[in-house]
């Protein structure tokens, strides 16, 4: 269940999925950098970059509905930030600042979406590691991802258990308390688990370095 949520499309088998991660990272960062540097007058170029990202997404078999949903969640937030500029002038100007923000961030978002939906996180991290990302940070990320799955499943189980004991519509205050309990209990369980993992690591000779057996 957590798997579906966390890696919806990154485990695919398309052409884009099979490209080496390093090449994809460099390409995406180039597109993002270019897209965020283009001034407003060059909007056709921005449009081309956005089109390129969309072509990439469709080659990678990412359904249009998913891209649309993500954009529908993304654009309002960017629009709110962008509109703050004209708002500060009482909607009497600064429209081009707003326009350039929306244009640039949409291009960058589509490019990033292509990268993350064609690359599983482990592969992405391996690529970033080779591009110079600190090893400590990568091993912490890998550990976090591993327990993200465990915590998501635990959270789902706790939610089910809570629903099973809730019979009628609750007042806001009650459901606030319930939610607090849910997250608080998850927090306590997570910290207890961290202690047990620490013990398990110590039992197997842990000396503070996360080493992986690379082939």
């Amino acid at each position: 269940m957590a798997v579906e949520f966390l890696e919806r499309y990154s485990q695919g088998q398309s052409l884009c999925h099979r490209w080496p991660a390093r090449a994809k990272i460099v390409l995406t960062l180039l597109v993002i950098a270019t897209g965020t540097l283009l001034p407003l007058e060059y909007w056709p170029a921005s449009g081309c970059l956005a089109g390129l990202a969309l072509v990439g997404l469709s080659v990678a078999d990412i359904p249009l509905g998913y891209i649309g949903r993500r954009l529908a969640l993304f654009l309002p937030l960017v629009l709110m930030t962008a509109l703050a500029a004209p708002l500060s002038r009482g909607f009497m100007g600064a429209w081009d600042t707003a326009a350039v923000i929306v244009l640039r961030s949409t291009v960058a978002f589509l490019a990033a979406l292509w990268l993350v939906s064609t690359t599983p996180l482990e592969t992405l991290l391996a690529g970033l590691c080779r591009l110079g990302m600190p090893r400590v940070f990568v091993s912490l990320l890998i550990f976090t991802l591993r327990y993200l799955y465990v915590l998501f499943d635990e959270l789902a189980r706790m939610k089910t258990a809570q629903r099973a004991r809730t019979f009628q519509r609750q007042s806001t205050w009650r459901s606030w308390l319930g939610t607090t309990q849910l997250v608080g209990m998850l927090l306590i369980r997570a910290l207890n688990r961290a202690e047990r993992i620490h013990a398990a690591m110590m039992s197997r000779g842990w000396r503070g370095r996360m080493e992986l057996l690379d082939d």
């Binding site: 976090t144 910290l191 620490h198 503070g208």
Partner: peptide
């Protein structure tokens, strides 16, 4: 020696807790 399990677990917890709607 506690760094990795404790920090990583806290990060996973914050990530999961951000998904819970209050």
């Amino acid at each position: 020696l506690r760094t990795v399990p404790l920090t990583g677990m806290m990060a996973a917890l914050i990530f999961a807790a951000q998904m819970v709607k209050f």
